[in-house]
Design a protein around this nucleic acid. Sequence first.
DNA 1: CCCTGATTCGC
DNA 2: GCGAATCAGG
Length: 192
Amino acid sequence: MSWTDERVELLKKMWGEGQSASQIAKELGGVTRNAVIGKVHRLGLSNRTTGAAPAKAEPKEKPAPAPKAEAKPKPAPKTEPARPAAAAPAAEAKPATPPRRQIIPAGQPLPPQPSANEISPEALAKVNEVEKKAKKLTLMELTEKTCKWPVGDPATDDFWFCGLPAEPGKPYCEAHVGVAFQPMSSRRDRRR
DNA sequence: CCCTGATTCGC
DNA sequence: GCGAATCAGG
């Protein structure tokens, strides 16, 4: 594969969006993340403020203009699985966050709310515990190895993803897998 | 161990 | 110019 105009453009775009080199490489196909990084450097666009790689680069002033328009185009990962409803009541301990933003949920989000009904009380309790030590990641911080269980109201500041180590092959951590995948037998005796 | 970006250097 | 190997931080 070679760096055609289109490919370079996509590279620039994604890099600009903060995508990681590996993600870009994966998207482009036929190249490794090293190739992407190499290209990025050759193109002159390099430093970003990404999670892991301050390296030994000297400290540089970066006004970082970044004119952000108030748009909310959810660039959700393609691998986004079906979203479970924000589960448990989430016993809020609230360490120190008094200035809470009172954003009125526009209309009525939270569509699929199949009701966190007949789930093992134990599983729920477990989830509540887990959510206290959750890593509270943002959408962009999720990977295929982090629990993607959403907590809270997406229309509020109080929204995050679990982020704990996900079970291999599953989108959630152990605790959340527990409430996400209910055996038929469990919801069986629903007396209709 | 997983991930990240940075750099080097033979091609 | 390219990118694998390597390095280095999280």
